[in-house]
Computed example of a mutant assay.
Amino acid sequence: MKRSGPLYTLLAGLALGLFVLSLNATTGEGTSSYGDAPAASASPAPSTPASASPSAEPSASPSKASPTRKDRAKTSYAGRTDDDSSAISISVRGDKAIAYFCDGRTKESWLKGNVEDNGEMKLSGKHGAKLDGRLTGDRVRGTTTIEKRPYGFTAKKAVKPSGLYRATTEVRGAKVDGGWIVLPDGRQVGIVRRDDKPSAAPPIDPESGAVTVDGDRLTARPVVP
């Protein structure tokens, strides 16, 4: 009986050691889990909302926009009617415009009026002549009505010497009034009236405007509103 005492003491010591080891293991696992928590809860870098980017909105094409008044400081447009029977030229300065319709034989008309901020223009002339058009980009598209007949047309921006010219003077006692349209391809369409009698106009020199009418040398000048 006296020998069993140390055995009990040894067993009690082993049990106590196992308990301490178990407690340490449990405490170590808890410390590890808390250390991982901050990494798991880190927020991703914020992304820029789609609505915050103004460049995502498409912009209007410059070629389709109506030129501003500043851009229309002094510009001419020239072209043909849709049926290719006549020519038309429009000279624009700011919010004012002058147009000339001419078939190169006997029919012509001068028209004038205003140009709105959106490029729309409504011009009028003698004998009920009118022009309704819109300036968009580098051209004017519209319809002109001459002697109650409508003509659709497209006039593109003219680069000198293309454009609209006119000469008004008196030659040998007769009043002379001539109008010329110089098209982008170099062709000319014009009418000269002598005491209000129309006939095909002789060609001008687009560089100088020089033209000879009934043997007299005249100068046709660009038309500006």
Rank of each mutant, 00 (worst) to 15 (best):
3 R>E: 15
5 G>P: 05
5 G>F: 11
6 P>S: 10
7 L>S: 12
8 Y>Q: 12
8 Y>N: 13
12 A>M: 12
13 G>T: 10
13 G>H: 11
15 A>V: 15
15 A>M: 15
15 A>L: 15
16 L>K: 07
16 L>T: 14
18 L>E: 14
26 T>E: 02
26 T>D: 02
28 G>S: 15
30 G>K: 13
30 G>Q: 12
32 S>D: 10
34 Y>R: 14
35 G>R: 03
39 A>L: 09
39 A>C: 05
42 A>C: 00
46 P>H: 06
47 S>Y: 10
47 S>I: 08
48 T>S: 14
50 A>F: 06
51 S>V: 01
51 S>I: 00
52 A>E: 12
52 A>S: 13
53 S>E: 11
54 P>E: 08
54 P>A: 11
55 S>P: 04
56 A>H: 08
58 P>Y: 07
60 A>Q: 02
61 S>C: 09
61 S>E: 15
62 P>C: 01
62 P>Q: 10
63 S>V: 13
66 S>R: 08
67 P>D: 09
70 K>E: 15
70 K>N: 15
70 K>F: 15
75 T>V: 10
75 T>C: 01
79 G>L: 08
79 G>I: 06
83 D>C: 13
85 S>M: 08
86 S>A: 15
91 S>F: 01
93 R>V: 02
94 G>N: 10
94 G>L: 02
99 A>I: 02
99 A>F: 07
101 F>V: 02
102 C>E: 10
102 C>T: 13
105 R>M: 12
106 T>W: 14
107 K>D: 11
108 E>P: 00
110 W>T: 14
110 W>I: 14
110 W>P: 09
111 L>T: 01
112 K>S: 15
113 G>K: 11
114 N>H: 11
120 E>G: 08
123 L>P: 01
125 G>S: 05
125 G>M: 04
127 H>K: 11
129 A>R: 07
129 A>V: 06
131 L>K: 02
133 G>I: 00
134 R>P: 02
134 R>A: 00
135 L>G: 02
135 L>Y: 06
137 G>W: 05
138 D>E: 03
140 V>N: 00
141 R>L: 00
146 I>S: 03
146 I>V: 13
147 E>H: 14
150 P>T: 03
155 A>G: 00
155 A>P: 00
156 K>A: 10
156 K>N: 14
161 P>E: 07
163 G>D: 03
165 Y>N: 02
165 Y>A: 07
166 R>P: 06
167 A>M: 13
168 T>Y: 01
171 V>P: 05
172 R>G: 05
173 G>I: 08
174 A>D: 14
175 K>P: 00
175 K>N: 12
176 V>A: 13
177 D>E: 11
178 G>I: 04
180 W>C: 07
182 V>N: 01
183 L>H: 04
186 G>R: 11
189 V>S: 03
190 G>N: 08
192 V>M: 09
193 R>S: 09
194 R>M: 09
198 P>Y: 08
198 P>R: 04
199 S>W: 07
199 S>R: 15
200 A>D: 01
205 D>C: 12
214 D>Q: 13
215 G>R: 10
220 A>P: 03
220 A>V: 06
220 A>H: 04
222 P>D: 09
223 V>D: 04
225 P>Q: 06
